[in-house]
Design a protein around this nucleic acid. Structure first.
Length: 863
RNA sequence: GGGUGAUUAGCUCAGUUGGCUAGAGCAUCUCGUUUACACCGAGAGGGUCGGGAGUUCGAGUCUCUCAUCACCCACCA
């Protein structure tokens, strides 16, 4: 029992993995239950959030395995194109290597090395948390099969006209030198300035003032927009303004985009560097002048109105140029006002560079129709979100979705299967050979340099990992669509929506039946975990400090339905306490001779064994309901209370006085059954501890314990169930009396007792002898060992001389009277009687009756 | 600006379709080593369920409204 559970856990897992216990078998004639891992990025080690989501998956898989399913928990990792490339580049930089000098191929070698290292770490970590995954089916988003799937998907969608190339503004990361999708851009509130700049009107003394947060973009201004209804500027529409410094003449146009309330009401238009301006420019045929290089330094080559000052800006960083231009505007008296201004500025999610809209040619995927289909699928109930509220989020995003920019100017990823002839013709094909065939033997082809957005391949994950595009693959036929997806709500857009869209498009089916969205891990006070706050908890540290099962148990108890999972070490301490408590309880039974217990037999039972079996049945019922509904917290809580309150505090205490008597074996056999079922119910959550106990108690083999069948409710003769709450009351009252030495205490317990209890007399005698307390039975309908329902037991301790208890009785009387009055009022209310369901009325009457009995009893004691 | 969710005991949270005196864990206080367990046991205190209004025989639960907080989406004048 003192074996180090972490060590044991590793050995057990190793054995089970090596013997293929986690391996799915499509040939078995069993129902299927499949979960795909949300593939972790190979950018680092697993964090606590991963531990949560993976443990939740594993719990349900282990549960289903016990329920007789052929389970598949498919593991794998994601190449995480942009994030990984960034880290590999950074890593190379520390070695003094620049990616551009070593070239694409060499760089990819480094990236693969990186991949192998981190995949290894991740695999080990998953094994350490007992993730019972089918490693024979492990996949990586850049492996051969997935490459095949990605190419197939791309070619098909291209041929269907959904994938196309387009030149338009795109979110550009000037640090990583790649395009980004809308989702990869974070708007961050930033303190900045609003500069008011005067633009003079051509051939006039008049002028117009515009406000901007990015004055350097004026180099690319080709117009000014005012609202057509704005009286202030109506007279200027159609006239030309003179751009300061450059003296470029730009047109003043009327456009609804100009908001009269915002800024000065007049807005400068820079079509090459602002999404809205681009649209305005298109409407009014304004020129597009690009003024930035790809790394966001000033590019003067497109500026016709150049001069020495402009020349001096060439190659300067955008923010430096901003300062210089502001100074110049001050000098020339064009700067009217500087305001402090907080606004949302787009930052790259990776690396944090400020994103610039940039005019480039990129590949886009038109997702509008698959988005619609995906929405329908959920609305029709073919795909269910748990909790349901996330469906709204899903709908909201999909119902106004823009074309998805899928190309990235990176090396690490799926290279786009598009080939160009020398005269610029595009051929899209899965292989170069195929493209060559289409182009003709002698045509020189070069493949598109770009790679695909990493989410393109993860979007295909549930299909590609099972063998798609080969729809006859045995795994695909057997395990697709999968059962449940368990993941954090933060990737509903990035990942879930994309998987649904692709799956709907290619198979007309949802890729899973249910999506379970859990909250994100925060610290114990609900604060986000971050390195700067110093509140990050490493799951491996936790496992070392406590143990794997305590951690898994804690994860289970905390996995509620909320948005935040508040996690503190105290939680794990409590988890460990629970497991210790269970071990101690089992230890008690071992000492009492559990090993010699015979098989539990319904026919030979006594009050307390029936009671505990009844409680056990209730626990099994509630636990099953909870886990079936993915209510991990309720699952854990149900078992917790059953083990701690019913099994330990009450059953053991009740049994103690019986264990020397004739009922010993009956009690031991019921204890054995209960322990077995507790271990089984806990196996999905704490697989190692339960397996070890299973072995040590000689219930069976520990390594195969995970295949034991999940407990079912045990049959009891229904007329033989005892309500022994009163017995517990007696025990506790006596303990309390002894504890507080309350001499002169009188109390009375009403018995709602359903049937014969053959041990009654013996039990009471034992208690009397042990405690020197008088126990008398009132309302004496008792013939020897029978207690009727209305029997009242009173306990009395001699030497009445304290009135502390009398005070308490008086207080309770007051409370009861209040309650009785309110119940009586309710029951005499005509509308209540007419409208309330009969069950409710009956319940109220029953309560009233009980209360009145209690009142009489208390009054007697009160004297 | 649009949306979603939250607000219940000192803290962290449960509370299924409205139904008996609103629960748990932790924390606090009192008492206690009795046949496993001090990683323990017995007990106690602590809540006008964010404010207000409405529907109902009955509201923590449904509707409206206000307030505060969190998150998501959109927005670089």
């Amino acid at each position: 029992m003192n074996e180090n559970i972490n060590t044991y856990s590793k050995e057990l897992y190793k054995f089970q993995e090596e013997h293929g216990y986690f391996t799915a078998n499509p040939n078995e004639n069993k129902p299927r239950f499949t979960i795909m891992i949300p593939p972790p990025n190979i950018t680092g080690n697993l964090h606590l959030g991963h531990a949560f989501t993976m443990t939740m998956q594993d719990i349900i898989i282990r549960y289903k395995r016990m329920c007789g399913y052929d389970t598949l928990l498919l593991p794998g990792t994601d190449h995480a194109s942009i994030a990984t490339q960034m880290l590999v580049e950074k890593d190379l930089k520390t070695k003094g290597i620049d990616r551009k000098t070593i070239g694409r191929e060499e760089f990819l070698n480094h990236a693969w090395q990186w991949k192998n290292k981190y995949t290894g770490n991740i695999q080990n970590q998953l094994r350490q948390i007992c993730y019972s995954a089918d490693w024979s089916r492990e996949r990586f988003t850049l492996d051969e099969g997935l490459n095949e799937a990605v190419k197939e998907a791309f070619v098909r969608m291209y041929n269907d006209g959904l994938i196309y190339k387009d030149k338009r503004l795109v979110n550009w990361d000037p640090s990583l030198l790649t395009s980004l999708s809308d989702l990869e851009v974070d708007m961050i509130e930033t303190n900045g300035n609003m500069w008011h700049i005067r633009y003079d009107i051509e051939n006039s003394d008049d002028y117009i003032i515009i406000a901007t947060t990015r004055p350097e973009t004026m180099l690319g201004d080709t117009g000014i927009a005012v609202n057509p209804n704005d009286e202030r500027f109506k007279h200027l529409i159609g006239k030309k303004a003179i751009l300061p410094i450059l003296n470029r003449k730009i047109e003043i146009v009327a456009d609804d985009y100009a908001d009269m309330e915002k800024g000065t009401g007049a807005v400068k238009i820079t079509p090459a560097h602002d999404f809205n301006d681009f649209e305005v420019g298109k409407r009014h045929n304004l020129k597009i002048i690009n003024i930035l290089h790809d790394n966001a330094t000033i590019d003067t080559s497109n500026i016709k109105e150049t001069n020495d000052f402009i020349q001096s800006l060439e190659g300067k960083d955008r923010f430096e140029a901003r300062k210089i231009i502001i100074e110049k505007l001050k000098e020339t008296n064009h700067l009217i006002k500087i305001e402090n201004y907080t606004h949302q500025v787009p930052h790259s999610q990776r690396g944090g560079a400020i994103v610039e809209p940039r005019l480039t040619e990129q590949w886009y995927l038109d997702v509008s129709s698959m988005a619609k289909k995906s929405i329908d699928l959920v609305k029709k109930g073919k795909l269910e979100f748990i909790p349901k509220m996330w469906e709204n989020t899903f709908f909201a995003w999909l119902s106004n979705i823009e074309p998805w920019c899928i190309s990235r100017q990176l090396w690490w990823g799926h290279q786009i299967p598009a080939y160009y002839t020398e005269d610029g013709k595009i051929i899209v094909a899965k292989t170069k050979e195929e493209a060559q065939k289409q182009a003709g033997e002698n045509v020189k082809l070069t493949q598109d340099e770009d790679v695909l957005d990493t989410w393109f391949s993860s979007g295909l994950w549930p299909m590609s990992t099972l063998g798609w595009p080969n729809e006859d693959a045995i795994d695909f036929k057997t395990y697709f669509p999968t059962s449940s997806l368990i993941t954090g709500f933060d990737i509903i857009f990035f990942w879930v929506a994309r998987m649904v869209m692709f799956s709907v498009y290619f198979t007309n089916k949802a890729p899973f039946e249910k999506v379970i969205c859990h909250g994100l891990v925060h610290d114990e006070h609900g604060q986000k975990m971050s390195k700067t706050k110093g509140n990050v908890i490493d799951p491996l540290d936790l496992i070392n400090e406590f143990d794997i099962d305590s951690v898994r148990w804690t994860i289970c108890t905390l996995s509620g339905q909320g948005r935040n999972i508040n996690f503190g070490k105290t939680n794990v301490e409590n988890g460990r306490k629970f497991i210790t408590k269970l071990k101690n309880a089992i230890n008690f039974w071992e000492q009492k001779g559990l090993s010699s217990a015979t098989k539990f037999n319904t026919n030979s039972s006594i009050a307390i064994t029936n009671w505990i079996i009844d409680k056990m049945n209730l626990a099994i019922k509630n636990a099953t309901k909870a886990i079936e509904n993915y209510r991990y917290d309720e699952y854990a809580q149900t078992i917790y209370h059953f083990v701690w309150d019913d099994f330990c505090d009450n059953f053991i205490e009740l049994s103690k006085s019986e264990l020397n008597g004739t009922n010993k074996d009956i009690i031991l056999s019921s204890a054995k059954l209960v322990i077995q079922n507790i271990l089984k119910m806990l196996q999905p959550v704490i697989p190692s501890t339960t397996a070890l106990l299973w072995k040590q108690l000689n219930f069976g083999t520990d390594t195969e314990f995970l295949f034991e069948s999940y407990p079912h409710e045990e049959k009891i003769l229904t007329d033989n169930i005892y309500d022994i709450d009163w017995l517990l009351q007696i025990i506790n009252v006596i303990r309390n009396i002894r504890a507080e030495n309350k001499i002169g205490f009188k109390t009375q317990i009403n018995v709602a007792f359903k049937a014969i209890n053959p041990n009654m007399k013996e039990y009471l005698n034992t208690l009397q002898n042990h405690t020197n307390i008088n126990i008398t039975i009132q309302n004496n309908n008792m013939t020897d060992f029978v207690i009727d329902k209305d029997t009242t037991i009173s306990i009395e301790i001699p030497n009445t001389n304290k009135n502390e208890e009398l005070e308490k009785i008086k207080e309770e009387l007051k409370e009861i009277e209040k309650h009785i009055t309110s119940l009586k009022n309710q029951l005499s209310n005509k509308s209540f009687i007419e409208k309330a369901p009969t069950q409710v009325i009956e319940d109220r009457k029953e309560t009233l009756k009980k209360l009145e009995e209690r009142k009489i009893a208390l009054e007697k004691l009160n004297g």
